[in-house]
Design a protein around this nucleic acid. Structure first.
Ligand code: MN
Ligand code: MN
Ligand code: ZN
Ligand code: ZN
Lengths: 151, 151
DNA sequence: TCTCAAATGCAACATTGTTGCATTTACGCG
DNA sequence: CGCGTAAATGCAACAATGTTGCATTTGAGA
């Protein structure tokens, strides 16, 4: 089964940052690398933890907040709030390739799988309402997890 | 626009609370009244401000958090996070009456609005996958919030 | 190399939400 | 009504997340 995956592009973070028109700093490169490697949007503390796993020096907490916001400001990252009210960051553009099909989320392993079906058309909205995003969320257990739990 | 979870009845808050199976306290009645009167989901501080406008004594900050959560726990209120990561509360109606149509969630105020359209049918899944839940999430800004942000 | 706006580190602060515990209160029951 | 008790409240402390101000350092163009 085709797993939803991050971009296979070997574009260096430093190149992306330079192309975005902001200074290439060690912090920005490390954070963007972390977002690229991540398989889901990361919150501030998760990025911090990821960075702590490296041998490099730690980035200041406030600086990390500012780096994340700067990546969003220059279009390299996306910022969204999760159900607990915490901001999560992901690389921008990674979602575009998954725009015209729907996804299945395994509630067991957390995996996201691409389905063949197209997303349903957005409904008609009352006057004055502004559509921003339509998400068809299909949840359950994937084949692997279903087999394992049936055993 | 028909707001989701609007109660057509003039049921007293105290009756609703009693029927929900929890103790009828002055705080719960006042908070539920505030949510009923509100035209949009209110966050903690907004409920606090609303209550401060009355002549009654102020409710402790922690108690207000606990009252709001208790109203959610007993099914009288709904809790959703807004775009800034703040929880907003609104009165809940019967959820059964909202089974056959889809909803629009305002990412600004957290409000939930009933739409006329039916929910889309569940997609066909790959072999071995087990469907558990399907959710059609339509997000954007409601008429009120769209007007306000355009100003 | 020089220069300086941009980025960083650090301290302090703000907002939102939670936990522990002593006190008070709602309400079922005799 | 008056009791007993579990639930609810008030208060202090704490936690998590995010922001502001300011002095210092640094990326990168001239
Ligand atoms: Mn928050
Ligand atoms: Mn996909
Ligand atoms: Zn799975
Ligand atoms: Zn709204």
């Amino acid at each position: 089964m085709a797993r939803a995956a991050s971009t296979p592009s070997a574009l260096l973070s430093s190149d992306l940052i330079r192309a975005a028109g902001v200074k290439v700093t060690r912090g920005r490169v490390r954070v963007l690398d972390a977002l690229q490697d991540a398989r889901q949007p990361l919150c501030h503390s998760e990025v911090e933890a990821q960075l702590a796993g490296t041998e490099d020096t730690a980035i200041d907490r406030v600086t990390l907040y500012r780096i994340l916001d700067s990546l969003v400001a220059c279009g390299l990252a996306l910022k969204a709030v999760d159900t607990r009210g915490v901001f999560r960051f992901s690389i921008a553009g990674g979602q575009r390739q998954h725009a015209n099909h729907i996804h299945f989320r395994c509630t067991d392993c957390g995996g996201v799988f691409c389905l063949k079906a197209e997303p349903p058309p957005p409904p008609k909205l009352p006057r004055g309402f502004r559509l921003c995003e339509v998400e068809f969320d299909v949840r359950g257990t994937c084949a692997t997890c279903s087999t394992r739990s049936a055993a």
